[in-house]
Amino acid sequence: MTKHSIKRGVSLYSFQEEYFLRRLTLEQCIEKSVSVGALGIETIAEQMMPGFPRLSDDFYAKWHGWVDQYGFVPTAHDMFAELKLYKDRPRPVDEMVNELRLDIDHTAKLGANIIRILALTPPEVVDKAAGYAGDRGIKLLTEIHAPHRFDSQWMEEVMMVAEKWGGEVVGLMPDLGVFVERLPRVVWERALRDGADPKFTAHVVNVYDSGEDTSGLPQKAQDLGLSPATVGIAWAATRYINEDPRSMLEYMPYIHHIQAKFYEMVDDDHEYSIPYDKIVSTLIEGGYDGYLSSEYEGNRHIQDAYGVDSFEQVRRHHAMMAKLLGEKDAA
């Protein structure tokens, strides 16, 4: 295997079900991640750090105690630009810039050096905060998230700001949910449990999985007078996209972190819908040297019928990634 410096991590987004139900604390989420060799920890303050953006010094002291105790590396902080805070008017850019500065301060206090910029954050906001971030050694990486594609108008605007500041300050964070080859099984199985028409659902899956255009499916379901759940799965199929993993290669100088989205690990080797083998080999070829940060997003699709075990899903995900990365101890 070609030599590489790709590292494994977890976004604690993966454990949202357990945290929501207060079955795991923030510290326990960290402990679980480290136990599967995920040594880079990405966090969502608004999920697991109540009080953000005004966290106490005590909180940060406790955090650094955990860094020492568990031996992990704080990687990224996920920010949310609250574009729709006001019901009756758009959010002024300057307000969002000021909030992004709070995100930058928080990230620095965590000892991380990357911020996930939410898709649809105006590139102007990133531009106006980039100097502040650069001075503090923080990178602002806009997520490339379905349904937004690599070659979109949106991306062009993001890249203009990235090119202005240089890839060490402003860049990109692909979410592997842009590489969905097969419609996630957990998604259409849920639709069936919710009462979607099986025949039309099969049609939706076939259209998506064969790479055909899905945009007409919701209208078609409506015209046929099918149930809301059927229209729902047709609509869902328009929100997933299947880009070529090799499309990342031309952006490599701007990519410093990856949200390794997954919906269902069927065993220790396969994710049902995303071609991790192709993705990892592309990243190695491109000389990527950041983290693959697991982002489990299956819980919401199975929680109606099954017990959610995010940890087992993350464990399998790391077993797979360790093998694909050629780690010595990987079974």
């Binding site: 987004y13 949202q16 929501f20 608004e46 949310f80 729709k84 805070l85 019901k87 919401r300």
Partner: peptide, 15 residues
Amino acid sequence: VRAGYYRGFRLALLE
């Protein structure tokens, strides 16, 4: 009641 959203949010967003 709990909010169904996947993160905490400012109350103005509760429509």
